[in-house]
Design a protein around this nucleic acid. Structure first.
Lengths: 166, 166
DNA sequence: ATTGCTGCAAACGATTTGCATGAGG
DNA sequence: CCTCATGCAAATCGTTTGCAGCAAT
């Protein structure tokens, strides 16, 4: 509910789209599942948008292409995309799961405004290094990490002198 | 469901307990709320345990002291504790809100095993510095951050050669 | 006395599941 | 054909809320 819509221009080229589809299809074959029109539509829609879609937001976009696709299928397909590394979940601490592209995407992090829900991404190689270092130290085989910074963006500070912070 | 129980020895001294109670009482007075036996019991129980309690886990412990306290009150009280800075929410990406002590606690981070749910804490001043730096760069007034590393712990790697990773 | 607190049960929103029907291999 | 996928509705899970009676100020 907090989340404000930023944009949804295509963020991926035609050739990357093709490649991503192949990754999905290979994954489906490997685990004995079937390639379907719905799954392809959902993948394409997902790839055409920018970051941090909730399942519900993605479903709304998907319905524009095929109104008969249900949200259940979107949930299930996002899980598939996460399994084959094309998507990954990112939690903004507001009780809603969001997904972002993972394919050909360098690891990055998020800063989220607790007033309006807008977010910016940033990159920090130091954080990657820390993941490795901490894992080694405690004998974990690390697979991933999350780093989120919360605060209030410039716009919101101008609008409200101060307000409740999540 | 994932989360494995690690320990729940007292993690706070008597005098810190007293101080924490005063912080809560002052906060209640300030915002015009009342001091009640339930709130005190919940605070004490919370402080007596170690990190990362879910509301449900805390409720179970609270009931040992006073079986008539309902989970609703635990939810509401944890929110109060968060408001006055004694507790803070920490999300382990499994859909369950957990809380940890915040009082007299230096900022720290978590590494979570995606197999058994156990977690270790670590400290990293670099991460604090990064929060500031990123905030400044994008004109956010930062309030907090989360940094979690996910992986598989040594024990789980010994037990299962490999298994599905969350 | 007044106002806030409590615990229960019902409501809620996000996500999952059971199932009958439909489509892919 | 057989198996898996789909969409719907119902179920589930964590969390929140309405409310009647109770307790703190």
């Amino acid at each position: 509910m907090l989340q404000k819509r930023i944009d949804d221009q295509p963020s991926i080229s035609r050739s990357m789209m093709r490649e991503a589809e192949e990754i999905l299809h290979r994954h489906l074959k490997r685990v004995g599942l079937k390639q379907t029109a719905q799954r392809d539509t959902i993948l394409r829609t997902f790839l055409e948008t920018r970051e941090h879609l909730s399942t519900d937001e993605l479903h709304r976009l998907v319905k524009k292409k095929d109104a008969r696709i249900g949200i259940t299928t979107v949930y299930r397909t996002l899980k598939l995309l996460a399994e084959c590394g094309l998507a990954s979940e990112v939690a903004f601490h507001d009780g809603i799961a969001r997904y972002e592209h993972q394919y050909n995407r360098r690891s990055h992090h998020h800063m989220v405004c607790t007033e309006c829900g807008s977010s910016v991404e940033f990159f920090s190689p130091e954080v990657e290094r820390l993941e490795q270092e901490i894992g080694r130290k405690h004998h974990y085989l690390t697979t991933r990490h999350t780093f989120q910074v919360y605060g209030v963006c410039e716009d919101c500070r101008k609008k409200n002198g101060s307000r409740r912070v999540v």
